[in-house]
């Protein structure tokens, strides 16, 4: 069975861990985030008849005080870049993160997730270009860890982008 190392990245409290928790049944405690900055989960899925194991490295959220350890991206097949749709500053963090990843770890396929879509009334991101991320992303999806909206689709889209880079970007909708 083919395995893929997938990283979850984004600003602090954008809902990365909640998305993973929605997607998989976590084994390890959340405390690993605060101790070593990463928690690992896995999810098996089938993509066009091929069985895959996604090993998810849920990295500690980036903020003013904490910088994501780029070493954790070593060997990653792709990543999910998560933004909190109610906090525009998390989009800027995502842009910076992507830039650092491409500098330090190389260009990797990623899927952009605009999370917390269940709070649509507080939605604060209206930039259609999403600061250039939309074009670069293999897919851009509105997600809700709370409702389960597009969660499975997000991981599947990334797996698809990794396994078959020519498949083209998918576009999610609310």
């Amino acid at each position: 069975m083919k395995q893929l190392k997938i990283c979850m990245l984004g600003a602090f409290a954008v809902g990365k861990t909640s998305l993973v928790a929605r997607f998989v049944k976590s084994v390890f405690s959340e405390k690993y985030h605060s101790t070593i900055g990463v928690k690992i989960d896995k999810k098996q899925l089938s993509l066009a008849g091929q069985d895959l194991t996604l090993v998810l490295w849920d990295l500690e959220g980036e903020d003013d005080l904490v910088r994501v350890q780029m070493t954790y991206l070593r060997g990653a097949a792709g990543y999910l870049l998560v933004v909190d749709g109610t906090r525009p500053e998390t989009l800027e963090t995502a842009v910076l993160l992507r830039r650092r990843i491409e500098t330090e770890a190389g260009v990797l396929p990623f899927v952009l997730l605009l999370n917390k879509y269940d709070l649509a009334e507080r939605w604060a991101i209206n930039d259609p270009g999403l600061l250039g991320l939309r074009d670069a992303a293999a897919a851009t999806l509105n997600t809700s860890a709370k409702d389960g909206l597009n969660v499975d689709e997000a991981f599947t889209a990334l797996a698809q982008a990794v396994v078959d880079p020519g498949s083209g970007a998918a576009e999610g909708s609310a």
């Binding site: 900055g37 090993v55 350890q69 070493t71």
Partner: peptide
């Protein structure tokens, strides 16, 4: 034994963490 895939990942993460 716990899930070997996860243990493997965590071991690698811990190693990276200590090294960094």
């Amino acid at each position: 034994a716990r899930d070997a895939d996860l243990v493997s990942g965590m071991l690698t993460a811990v190693t990276d963490f200590v090294r960094d």
